[in-house]
Design a protein around this nucleic acid. Structure first.
Lengths: 343, 343
DNA sequence: GTTGTGATTGCAATCGGTTGCAACTATGTC
DNA sequence: GACATAGTTGCAACCGATTGCAATCACAAC
């Protein structure tokens, strides 16, 4: 910038004003043009760090998620980015593998970079970091999963309860009366909310509902939980509502290993409607969650908080919808169930 | 930091030395302890921007990709991050949608943030930005896809040619002698390399090989290209080697729409081995590319370049391997081909 | 001719660390 | 006791912008 000032024969303060859109009108148009020419010919690139240092603003947002390879996160992050980049913000990404130590490290590292705010998608129910952040006056928005306690931060999720209700209604309409819920780990609020909604929905409709809990939101955990469900005595349920698409996929693998077919023997509904579900075997019926929009809304909320300087802990529950594909069908006549099912 | 200095009764220069691991041994251990206590009690968080300003180092790396929701990128980025974060670097993410203007904007925006280097996964064959970056002395590593011209930047890819050869060999072993290559768009080098390898492999083995080119590396484009291939006269080929898993998926959709089954009527091989392929219908045989490792290697190369201050344009081709699943099988007797196939 | 007004521009402090250099202290050596 | 040496710490300039305040200037009004 000093070079530009020298080249155009003005003080660097004037250059600063000329190059900043907000103060551009304070400088004479002929000077402005001269400065702009000088800047262009010198290939001047402003230093956001220096500007940020002075204005204590970094124009960056920290995004903390457990694992980018979990298919729900890429769309969320794209959504976030779609709102950030037009406004000049950039996303700093950190994965935590849901590890407490990595999570602290990521938080700290982003804090050291003076991010203007955080978008957090880890969603562990109890989180000391949140209280800490709140106390420190950090701007933050929770996405996808909330926390058990009240937090001072806004939250953007899908409407979990209504998604589960839609899934149950769909199965009921097909003729199922005995359902299994493949719940997610208890330390995630989304899992808790969905499990509660399942209980409530089956009770209301007078259905039999059983629940098994997977140890993680993953294919492996879903499969293990399903294995367990299939090993305990006589199976009565004819359909499964999973808390997550990955668990649903694991469940289908387990069913297949036990000689049961989906949807012929057992119907399965997933949750999130991750990409490519229609190409799966069978194409998975799932609750569509507007992940992109979720990320975008979270980013909007965060920027609002950053720019107004205050946040209200609203909860935004985005509408979801059931996408019916090939993994759900009317139940078979129980008498024709294959023997293996009872093993 | 001034507060910490005040509190511990030393000069801020000393605090700086005490808190920096590299200069920590220059300060007396009792003073050090006093400073650390003061820092902790004050909740001091160093400002990386300020430090970066002085040292002209930002400890950040810009990652430019076309689209995070393309399933090959999340693993690559995880790989990158796994190398960056232990060394104190953070990734700044930017999507470009393969748009030239967005790409320039992303590059510029990251440059303004004074990233220490770039990892670029866009892979358009001709790229003015690369020449520009090279001229500006920017550190950069290309990942997944290279460029047609020689660039002064290192490149990390999978071994495309050997992957295609493995796919062809596998199909030959099954008894196929007439293959179709579903190529990727010509403006991506990976597509070009794979197409050339296909030509070469079929020629060497004395097979008939046809090529159709998809307009993008996507399901839709793959499907469209396949539709086209199926509409042109009599089909002789019995297997398809796609340039990419998404194209393969699109091809399978097209086949299905034309009343052809995979692998019964037509075998299909994908490329990249993206996640969840084994749950697809049919489970897709694909060339496994070590995406995580690719990202990690790119990050290592970049950090090396940043820290040594010089880069050599090496090309690292990571070994790939064919993962055989359910989408490939021996060809049917041509006479039993369903009539639809000839439509 | 004087004064007021608004538009430009210069000045210099500041943001929060880093670092070469100088100063000071304690210890050891002859 | 003088002096060299190593270990600590203070000093102050600097990184590259931003911005409140003051200075300057041109022009119009009186």
């Amino acid at each position: 910038m000093a070079d530009v000032a020298l080249r155009s024969g003005v003080h660097k303060g004037t250059v600063s004003r000329a190059l900043n859109p907000a103060t551009r009108d304070q400088v004479n148009s002929s000077t402005l043009e001269r400065i702009e020419r000088a800047a262009a010919s010198l290939g001047y690139v402003p230093n956001v760090m220096a500007s940020g240092l002075r204005r204590s603003l970094s124009m960056t947002v920290g995004v903390i998620i457990p694992d980018l390879t979990n298919p729900i996160f890429p769309p969320i992050i794209r959504g976030i980015e779609s709102e950030l980049s037009p406004r000049g913000y950039t996303a700093l990404l950190a994965n935590t593998d849901a590890t407490d130590s990595l999570e602290r490290a990521a938080y700290r590292s982003l804090l050291e970079r003076r991010v203007d705010g955080f978008i957090v998608g880890t969603g562990l129910t109890d989180h000391p970091l949140l209280a800490e952040a709140a106390a420190a006056g950090v701007r933050m928005v929770l996405v996808n999963r909330g926390t058990s306690e009240r937090t001072p931060f806004p939250l953007v999720t899908g409407d979990d309860a209504s998604g589960i209700r839609a899934a149950v209604d769909h199965l009921v309409a097909l003729g199922h009366t005995d359902l299994l819920h493949l719940a997610g780990p208890k330390d995630f609020t989304s899992a808790l909310v969905r499990a509660a909604a399942f209980k409530e929905a089956t009770r209301r409709r007078g259905l039999r509902g059983t629940t098994v809990t997977a140890s993680a939101f993953s294919i492996e955990a879903g499969r293990a939980a399903m294995d367990q469900a299939l090993q305990t005595g006589t199976r009565r349920w004819t359909a499964v509502v999973a808390s997550n698409d990955l668990e649903a996929l694991g469940a289908i693998r387990s069913l297949r290993a036990h000689g049961l077919r989906c949807p012929d023997d057992v119907s399965v509904v997933g949750f999130n409607d991750m990409a490519f579900l229609e190409d799966f075997s069978p194409p998975l019926t799932s609750v569509h969650v507007p992940l992109l929009e979720m990320g975008a809304e979270a980013a909007r909320l965060l920027i609002l908080g950053v720019e107004t300087g205050s946040q209200t802990p609203v909860t935004v529950a985005l509408p979801v919808s059931l996408i019916v594909r090939g993994s759900t069908a009317p139940p078979r006549d129980p008498r024709t169930l294959p023997a293996l099912a009872y093993s």
